[in-house]
């Protein structure tokens, strides 16, 4: 009798199991969508393999057309203060979106080293006269080789190097005011 009762109870539980499973799946999906909306979850976001490692050295030419100085290996090996390395291109639309944030950072005294990715020097110069120049130095990565050294997916992409030239943070995609206030400002203060 009790045996039969127990089996009927477990049978009823089993009948509800698919519904429970579907509900759990729905809840997970909802949490995922919520995270994507408020930016705490990014399905395409993959952590950089360089975090905590010394920044790859770059030996690239300056972009003469912009009149800006270039930078060599020393600037990345021991910057002395936290510095941003920003990969960008004049043909890249998100770079236009990001530009005001770079300008604001530069005004606050943050040093930004630019890497002009697969671009034409004349176009790069035109871009900077039109939108302003946030870079203290600029080099050209015409072939995209430096991009691969940094594990770049695409432009824009920004790396934070601490005073010893160790990569502390990477942001793939345009920097937004939210990115600055939620992440970069804190990191800049932490490594200052």
């Amino acid at each position: 009798m009790s045996e039969a009762k127990r089996s009927s109870v477990s049978r009823r539980a089993l009948m509800w199991a698919p519904l429970g499973l579907a509900a759990a799946g729905g809840l997970g999906f909802w949490a995922m969508l919520r995270g994507m909306q408020d930016g705490s979850y990014d399905p395409r976001g993959v952590p950089s393999a360089l975090i905590g490692k010394p920044a790859p050295r770059l030996a690239l030419p300056a972009v003469a057309e912009t009149g800006l100085p270039g930078f060599g290996e020393a600037a990345l090996a021991s910057p002395g203060a936290p510095v941003l390395v920003n990969f960008w291109a004049s043909w890249c639309v998100p770079c236009v979106v990001e530009h005001p944030q770079l300008m604001a950072l530069q005004k606050r005294g943050v040093r930004i080293l630019g890497v002009n990715y697969k671009d034409k020097p004349a176009d790069a110069a035109k871009f900077l006269t039109r939108y302003g120049n946030p870079f203290s130095a600029l080099v050209a990565d015409a072939e995209g080789r430096a991009g691969i050294e940094y594990g770049l997916y695409g432009v824009p992409e920004t790396y934070l190097l601490d005073r010893d030239g160790v990569v502390r943070w990477r942001w793939a995609g345009p920097l937004t005011p939210d990115t600055l206030s939620a992440e970069l400002d804190i990191l800049l203060r932490r490594h200052a």
């Binding site: 993959v46 952590p47 950089s48 393999a49 360089l50 790859p56 691969i148 050294e149 940094y150 594990g151």
Partner: peptide
């Protein structure tokens, strides 16, 4: 060489 730059993914 590529794994070191782009990670496990």
């Amino acid at each position: 060489h590529i794994h070191a730059r782009y990670g496990d993914f």
